[in-house]
C-alpha cells in the first residue's frame, strides 16, 4: 500500500505541509502539486488541503475551482481515484461539483477553532473504511465557513445512500443534520471540515485522525 499522495496547493493554502507530514508518518510518500499543474504525475491518491485558496475571495473555493489542476483532480476522481478535501479543500470540492451542497458561514458568525467529537456514521468510503460505524473520534476544527447546507432533495439522497460519513456529536457550526463529512456516489471522494492531519499524535491532543488517514492510504 505504498501510496504516493498529491497534496494540492493553491495560492493561500496553508495546511499542505501538515498533510505531507501526516501521510508520510503513515508510510506514504507525498508531493505538493501547485494549482497550475495540469497533471498529478505518479500520484495514486489526492488530498486537497485546507487554507484560504485565493484568499477565499468571492466565496471559498470559487476561484480555486477554475485552476488547471482541478481538471486533473476531476479526471482522477472520475476514474475512481481516492480524493479527500479537508476544510477549505471540502469547500473547493463542492464548488467544483465533485461533492454536492455548499459550505456557508457558521451559524452565529463564530470562527470555530478547537477539538470536536465526531461520530463515524458510514465506514463505506475511502476515508472511513478502517473505522467502525458509531466510533467516536476527537479531531480539531478550524473554520468560519463550515456550515454544510444543501437542498432537501440532496439531503434525502445523502441519507438514503448512506453518504454522510461523519457527523458532529455537538454541532459547532449549524450544519444541516450535524454533517461534518460526506462522500460522492462512488464513495471515492470525501470532503470534511475537521482536520485529521492535525490529530496524529497524543502530543497534539489526539491521534484519532490516523484511522482516517490509514483508511485513505489503504483505499
Amino acid at each position: 500500500m505504498a501510496r504516493h499522495v498529491a497534496v494540492i496547493r493553491f495560492p493561500g493554502t496553508n495546511c499542505e505541509f501538515d498533510v505531507v507530514e501526516a501521510v508520510t508518518a503513515e508510510g506514504a510518500t507525498a508531493e505538493i502539486v501547485f494549482h497550475d499543474a495540469t497533471s498529478l504525475g505518479a500520484a495514486d491518491a489526492v488530498v486537497v488541503a485546507g487554507g484560504f485558496a485565493h484568499g477565499d475571495y468571492l466565496r471559498p473555493g470559487a476561484i480555486a475551482r477554475f485552476s488547471p489542476v482541478m481538471e486533473a483532480v476531476a479526471a482522477f476522481a472520475a476514474d475512481g481515484g481516492p480524493v479527500v478535501g479537508i476544510c477549505n479543500g471540502f469547500q473547493v470540492l463542492t464548488e467544483a461539483h465533485l461533492l454536492p451542497g455548499a459550505l456557508q458561514k457558521n451559524a452565529g458568525l463564530k470562527f470555530r477553532c478547537g477539538m470536536v467529537d465526531l461520530r463515524v456514521d458510514s465506514s463505506d468510503s475511502v476515508l472511513t473504511s478502517g473505522a467502525a460505524e458509531g466510533q467516536l473520534l476527537r479531531i480539531p476544527i478550524n473554520h468560519f465557513e463550515g456550515n454544510y447546507t444543501c437542498s432537501p432533495g440532496t439531503l434525502a439522497e445523502l441519507r438514503d445512500q448512506d453518504r454522510v460519513v461523519l457527523r458532529y456529536v455537538d454541532n459547532p457550526n449549524g450544519s444541516v443534520d450535524d454533517i461534518a463529512g460526506i462522500c460522492n456516489e462512488g464513495r471515492n471522494v470525501v470532503g470534511l471540515m475537521p482536520h485529521p492531519e492535525r490529530a496524529i499524535s497524543e502530543l497534539l491532543g489526539s491521534d484519532d485522525g490516523r484511522v482516517l488517514l490509514r483508511s485513505f492510504l489503504a483505499a
Partner: peptide
C-alpha cells in the same frame, strides 16, 4: 457559473 453558488 462563477459569481453565485446556485446551491445557496
Amino acid at each position: 457559473r462563477f459569481l453565485t453558488n446556485p446551491v445557496i
